[in-house]
Amino acid sequence: EEERTFTNEEEARKAKKEAEKRGLRVTVTKDGTTWRVRIG
């Protein structure tokens, strides 16, 4: 499991799409101005 943080919503969405392409489970949460993308 890996967690990545982004300040840019577009980049967070891109990371989510890429992980889904690899067949991984992805959770995206917004924490104030930060987007957290949890993969795995």
Score class of each variant (00 low, 15 high):
residue 1 E to W: 15
residue 1 E to Y: 15
residue 1 E to L: 13
residue 1 E to F: 15
residue 1 E to A: 13
residue 2 E to H: 12
residue 2 E to M: 12
residue 2 E to L: 13
residue 2 E to Y: 15
residue 2 E to A: 08
residue 2 E to T: 12
residue 2 E to F: 14
residue 3 E to R: 04
residue 3 E to T: 11
residue 3 E to I: 14
residue 3 E to W: 13
residue 3 E to A: 05
residue 4 R to H: 12
residue 4 R to S: 06
residue 4 R to T: 07
residue 4 R to Y: 15
residue 4 R to L: 15
residue 4 R to V: 10
residue 4 R to K: 10
residue 4 R to P: 03
residue 5 T to Y: 12
residue 5 T to M: 10
residue 5 T to P: 02
residue 5 T to E: 08
residue 5 T to D: 05
residue 5 T to A: 06
residue 6 F to E: 01
residue 6 F to Y: 12
residue 6 F to R: 00
residue 6 F to K: 00
residue 6 F to D: 01
residue 6 F to S: 00
residue 6 F to N: 00
residue 6 F to I: 01
residue 7 T to H: 09
residue 7 T to S: 10
residue 7 T to W: 09
residue 7 T to Y: 11
residue 7 T to I: 07
residue 7 T to P: 08
residue 7 T to N: 10
residue 8 N to V: 06
residue 8 N to I: 06
residue 8 N to L: 07
residue 8 N to M: 05
residue 8 N to H: 06
residue 9 E to Q: 07
residue 9 E to V: 08
residue 9 E to Y: 15
residue 9 E to H: 06
residue 9 E to L: 11
residue 9 E to P: 06
residue 10 E to I: 10
residue 10 E to V: 09
residue 10 E to F: 11
residue 10 E to Y: 13
residue 11 E to P: 01
residue 11 E to C: 07
residue 11 E to A: 09
residue 11 E to I: 02
residue 12 A to L: 04
residue 12 A to E: 00
residue 12 A to Q: 01
residue 13 R to W: 15
residue 13 R to Y: 15
residue 13 R to Q: 13
residue 13 R to F: 15
residue 14 K to P: 00
residue 14 K to W: 10
residue 14 K to F: 10
residue 14 K to L: 12
residue 14 K to S: 10
residue 14 K to N: 12
residue 14 K to A: 13
residue 15 A to S: 04
residue 15 A to Q: 03
residue 15 A to K: 02
residue 15 A to T: 05
residue 15 A to V: 08
residue 15 A to N: 03
residue 15 A to D: 02
residue 15 A to L: 11
residue 16 K to E: 13
residue 16 K to L: 10
residue 16 K to C: 13
residue 17 K to G: 09
residue 17 K to F: 14
residue 17 K to D: 14
residue 17 K to Q: 14
residue 17 K to R: 13
residue 17 K to M: 14
residue 17 K to I: 14
residue 18 E to H: 06
residue 18 E to Y: 07
residue 18 E to K: 05
residue 19 A to R: 01
residue 19 A to Q: 03
residue 19 A to I: 07
residue 19 A to W: 11
residue 19 A to D: 01
residue 19 A to F: 12
residue 20 E to N: 04
residue 20 E to A: 05
residue 20 E to Y: 04
residue 20 E to I: 07
residue 20 E to P: 01
residue 20 E to M: 08
residue 20 E to S: 04
residue 21 K to P: 00
residue 21 K to A: 14
residue 21 K to S: 14
residue 21 K to Q: 12
residue 21 K to R: 13
residue 21 K to D: 13
residue 21 K to Y: 09
residue 21 K to G: 12
residue 21 K to N: 11
residue 22 R to I: 07
residue 22 R to T: 04
residue 22 R to K: 09
residue 22 R to E: 05
residue 22 R to P: 01
residue 22 R to A: 10
residue 22 R to C: 07
residue 23 G to V: 02
residue 23 G to T: 01
residue 23 G to C: 07
residue 23 G to L: 03
residue 23 G to Y: 03
residue 23 G to R: 03
residue 23 G to I: 01
residue 24 L to M: 09
residue 24 L to G: 02
residue 24 L to F: 12
residue 24 L to V: 05
residue 24 L to N: 03
residue 24 L to H: 06
residue 24 L to P: 00
residue 25 R to G: 03
residue 25 R to Q: 10
residue 25 R to V: 10
residue 25 R to Y: 11
residue 26 V to G: 03
residue 26 V to M: 03
residue 26 V to E: 00
residue 26 V to H: 00
residue 26 V to R: 00
residue 26 V to S: 03
residue 27 T to M: 07
residue 27 T to I: 10
residue 27 T to D: 04
residue 27 T to Q: 06
residue 27 T to W: 10
residue 27 T to P: 00
residue 28 V to N: 00
residue 28 V to C: 10
residue 28 V to P: 00
residue 28 V to D: 00
residue 28 V to M: 14
residue 28 V to F: 06
residue 29 T to N: 04
residue 29 T to F: 13
residue 30 K to M: 08
residue 30 K to Y: 15
residue 30 K to D: 05
residue 30 K to T: 14
residue 30 K to V: 09
residue 30 K to P: 04
residue 30 K to L: 11
residue 30 K to H: 13
residue 30 K to R: 11
residue 30 K to W: 15
residue 31 D to L: 08
residue 31 D to G: 02
residue 31 D to A: 06
residue 31 D to F: 08
residue 31 D to W: 07
residue 32 G to W: 01
residue 32 G to D: 05
residue 32 G to R: 02
residue 32 G to Q: 04
residue 32 G to F: 02
residue 32 G to A: 04
residue 32 G to I: 01
residue 32 G to L: 03
residue 32 G to E: 05
residue 32 G to H: 03
residue 33 T to G: 13
residue 33 T to D: 15
residue 33 T to Q: 13
residue 33 T to E: 15
residue 33 T to Y: 12
residue 33 T to M: 11
residue 34 T to D: 07
residue 34 T to P: 00
residue 34 T to L: 15
residue 34 T to W: 11
residue 34 T to M: 14
residue 34 T to Q: 10
residue 34 T to H: 12
residue 34 T to E: 09
residue 35 W to I: 05
residue 35 W to L: 03
residue 35 W to V: 03
residue 35 W to M: 02
residue 35 W to E: 01
residue 35 W to R: 02
residue 35 W to K: 02
residue 36 R to I: 15
residue 36 R to Y: 14
residue 36 R to K: 11
residue 36 R to W: 08
residue 36 R to F: 13
residue 36 R to A: 04
residue 36 R to P: 02
residue 37 V to R: 00
residue 37 V to Q: 00
residue 37 V to I: 08
residue 37 V to D: 02
residue 37 V to M: 07
residue 37 V to Y: 01
residue 38 R to F: 13
residue 38 R to W: 12
residue 38 R to H: 10
residue 38 R to P: 00
residue 38 R to E: 06
residue 39 I to V: 07
residue 39 I to R: 01
residue 39 I to Q: 02
residue 39 I to K: 01
residue 39 I to M: 06
residue 40 G to V: 15
residue 40 G to M: 14
residue 40 G to S: 14
residue 40 G to Y: 15
residue 40 G to K: 11
residue 40 G to R: 11
residue 40 G to W: 15
residue 40 G to E: 14
